[in-house]
Computed example of a mutant assay.
Amino acid sequence: MNIDAYRRTGQFDGECLCGAVQIRVDGDYVAAIGICHCSLCQKSNGVVWGAFLASAPAVHVTGQIARYASTSFSERTFCPTCGSNLWLRDTDRDEADYEMMPALFPAAAEFPLISEIYTDRAPAYAPLSGDHRRATRAEYEAKNRHVSGGGS
């Protein structure tokens, strides 16, 4: 599946569980979800981790956020009041896309699943079906930056 087919420009809003953090996407984004089953993402979310991409200039945040440097090149953010995960983002370049948590945005409930990585690390209780790209840990890490052992 070609990610370009899902690129959009528009505006929609989301918020954390308690409403203390408000997020507006106003600009370019990808209206599709990617899933990760690596151990870092599983620990962060408790099951699987899914996100859609939004360009840095499109993301506008109101409210206090907390940051956690989960790798040497990325951070995860969350609401310090309710703990809702907000996004994952590379920290080594200002123009890096935001990997936004779809459940924060009612509009994202319509986005299709288009990719799944670390499929060989997926827990038995969370199988995903459908016609989407899949990659094992070895396949993904052969082509992408990662943390040594982070995908275990």
Rank of each mutant, 00 (worst) to 15 (best):
V48E: 01
F105G: 05
D28M: 12
F12T: 11
A108S: 10
I114M: 15
P102S: 05
G83A: 03
C36T: 01
T9W: 03
A107V: 14
A138I: 08
Q64C: 03
T81A: 08
L17N: 04
E141P: 06
V47M: 14
V47S: 10
L128W: 02
A122R: 13
A96V: 15
A124G: 14
D90Q: 15
S39A: 10
V25I: 06
A69H: 10
S148D: 08
L17K: 06
P112D: 10
N45R: 15
T91D: 03
I3Y: 04
E15L: 04
Y140A: 11
G19R: 08
A32P: 09
D92E: 15
V30Y: 15
L86H: 09
V147L: 09
L88T: 08
M1L: 15
Y98F: 11
C41Y: 01
R137M: 06
V47A: 10
E141S: 08
P106C: 05
Y125E: 00
I3M: 10
P106G: 04
E15F: 09
C82F: 09
S74Q: 04
P57C: 00
A31F: 11
V30M: 12
C38I: 02
S129L: 12
R133S: 14
N85C: 13
H60F: 00
D97Q: 13
E116R: 07
G150W: 13
T136A: 09
F73M: 14
P127W: 11
Y125V: 05
P112E: 12
I35N: 02
A20N: 11
A103T: 14
K43S: 09
Q42P: 01
I117H: 06
V30W: 15
V147R: 11
N144Q: 01
R133Y: 07
H60G: 00
D26G: 00
D28A: 15
R67E: 14
F78Q: 09
S72D: 12
E116S: 12
S129W: 01
I23S: 00
W87Q: 07
L104M: 01
I35V: 11
N85G: 12
K43Y: 03
G50D: 07
I117V: 12
R67C: 13
G34R: 10
S115A: 05
G19Q: 05
C38N: 00
L104P: 02
A103Q: 13
L128N: 02
G27L: 01
I114D: 05
P80K: 07
L104G: 00
C18A: 03
E141G: 07
K143R: 14
A142H: 02
I33R: 13
I65D: 01
Y125P: 01
A107M: 07
S44R: 10
G34Y: 11
V59I: 00
C38Q: 02
R7D: 13
Y6I: 09
E95T: 11
D4F: 13
L128I: 07
S84D: 03
A31E: 12
E99W: 11
